[in-house]
């Protein structure tokens, strides 16, 4: 029997994304193992067990191993790993936090990431995001759970120049959000023509 093929919720958009000009780059992130971690108190013990200092400042993220640790709430984080399988990752994180009263749940397929890069992506986001994305306010390391268009998202700033963002969206909303982003980017993707 052939190996089971994986399909991404954004597979149908790959070609469209590839044709976008640099100022409004959109790419679908690859499959990434993701675990939702709940932990009441974060201290040296947790850091030692997890191998990462979970960020305690609200609305921030930090690099963590091959992935990231994103603050979701005062006792909740999203941890990603680009080298482990979801099962391995959940098992490892769960083993680390369980003795500390925490929990870990594999949510790798719950969301998919859309990487937005380019000089105009801040403008694209501003058409449907009420958060202030000015680089002085929302620089690298910032994150926010908020609404983009009509979809709930986790938004991460990956640069200090407001030109590199990661948008995590629930998989069922991925198609909507992809269409929404492409529509928002239209002003920057279409070469004006005077076809009169």
């Amino acid at each position: 029997m052939a190996e089971l093929l994986r399909t991404s919720p954004l597979q149908a958009w790959t070609d469209t994304f590839a044709r976008l000009p640099d100022p409004v780059g959109i790419t679908a992130e690859p499959f990434v193992a993701t675990v939702d971690v709940r932990l009441g108190t974060v201290g040296p013990e947790a850091s030692a067990a997890l191998g990462v200092d979970l960020p305690t400042a609200p609305n921030t993220w930090v690099p963590a191993g091959t992935g990231r640790a994103v603050w979701l709430g005062p006792d909740e984080w999203l941890l990603t790993s680009s080298t482990e399988t979801p099962e391995e990752f959940e098992a490892r994180v769960r083993a680390a936090v369980l003795p500390l009263g925490g929990s870990a749940t594999d949510v790798s397929a719950q969301r998919i990431g859309l990487r937005l890069t380019g000089a105009r992506v801040r403008d694209v986001l501003a058409t449907g995001c009420s958060i202030d994305l000015h680089p002085r306010v929302f620089g690298r390391g910032s994150s926010a759970q908020t609404t983009l268009g009509q979809a709930g998202v986790v938004l991460l700033a990956l640069s200090d120049a407001a030109d590199d963002f990661l948008v995590l969206v629930r998989s069922s909303f991925a198609g909507y959000l992809a269409d929404w982003l492409l529509d928002a980017a239209l002003e920057f993707t279409t070469t004006p023509t005077h076809d009169r």
Binding site: P58, N59, G73, P74, S130, I131, A144, Q145, T146, T147
Partner: peptide, 17 residues
């Protein structure tokens, strides 16, 4: 559109609450 200050996230638009 009023702002409501979440004790953790700070001011956000009221529709988030």
């Amino acid at each position: 559109m009023q702002l409501i200050a979440c004790p953790w996230c700070g001011p956000r638009e009221e529709v988030e609450f």
